[in-house]
Design a protein around this nucleic acid. Sequence first.
DNA 1: CTTTCTGCAAAAGGTTTGCAGTTAG
DNA 2: CTAACTGCAAACCTTTTGCAGAAAG
Lengths: 145, 145
Amino acid sequence: MTQTHDALQVLRSRGYRVTEPRKRVLKVLAEAQRPVSPYEIQEILQQKGEYLNHVTIYRVLDLFCSLKLAHKVLLGGGFVRCTLGAEDGCHRFVVCRQCGALREYADKALCEEETAIAQEFGFRAEQHFSEFSGICSECMASARS
Amino acid sequence: MTQTHDALQVLRSRGYRVTEPRKRVLKVLAEAQRPVSPYEIQEILQQKGEYLNHVTIYRVLDLFCSLKLAHKVLLGGGFVRCTLGAEDGCHRFVVCRQCGALREYADKALCEEETAIAQEFGFRAEQHFSEFSGICSECMASARS
DNA sequence: CTTTCTGCAAAAGGTTTGCAGTTAG
DNA sequence: CTAACTGCAAACCTTTTGCAGAAAG
């Protein structure tokens, strides 16, 4: 995972230390295919026999979010690795309401439209952040509803 | 507020009772210019000398959300009156990161674009829900940052 | 070695549940 | 009157804080 390696570089270059807990949380986020909550991260680690105090996990996630290495997904309330380095200030997610599967994307056109709408309301747009829920192909196949 | 009156009609027509607590919570939501949390609602009511148990507020909000009379805003975690009757399944918000001021809007073009993006990922879009943060005109004026 | 980070204990919020009593219709 | 609703108590889960000891660089 070069991506994980890059993240560690970000830590180092900003003067933060590369520690075992930080590497573990990063790995869980990288391997999770969906947003995971602090306590879920703890459980996942416990299954590998790697214990981390939940307070530590909270603090690591806080740090990661401030460095844009992770992102707090609001629908459901978990955390995900940020997969986007480009398109700054634009984090868009599709979340499957059934299984929680998540895809991140960025879209310039959407940002421009939203910025225009914001201006009509007297707002200056900064962070474009959107989540929308639907159902993924796998869940669509399994549940005929 | 005819809107409040309409909401009471929705309750009645769906077989729910129109009670004092429900009217009070509805009024607070209607008067609030920003998302309010359950405990904030309790405080606002207390200032008017109207006490409600927090559990009741939670249950009223749950009901309102299920009837689409209210909406849970994820940024910040409060609740707002749903101002949209039309454009079903489309709830978009601009939130001021400074003062929490909020505007709700719907936009068909955005929905269509998002639906198309979802399809590329194999998702069928259902609820279009977006929030984006910025800064409102008042906060822009007061803080020159 | 020194500063940063982690773990522990504990507290502080937020949210949910069960049940008895109240109230709307 | 009766089903629906509220209040209370208590449990539960999540998040935060302070401090002493451990570890990175």
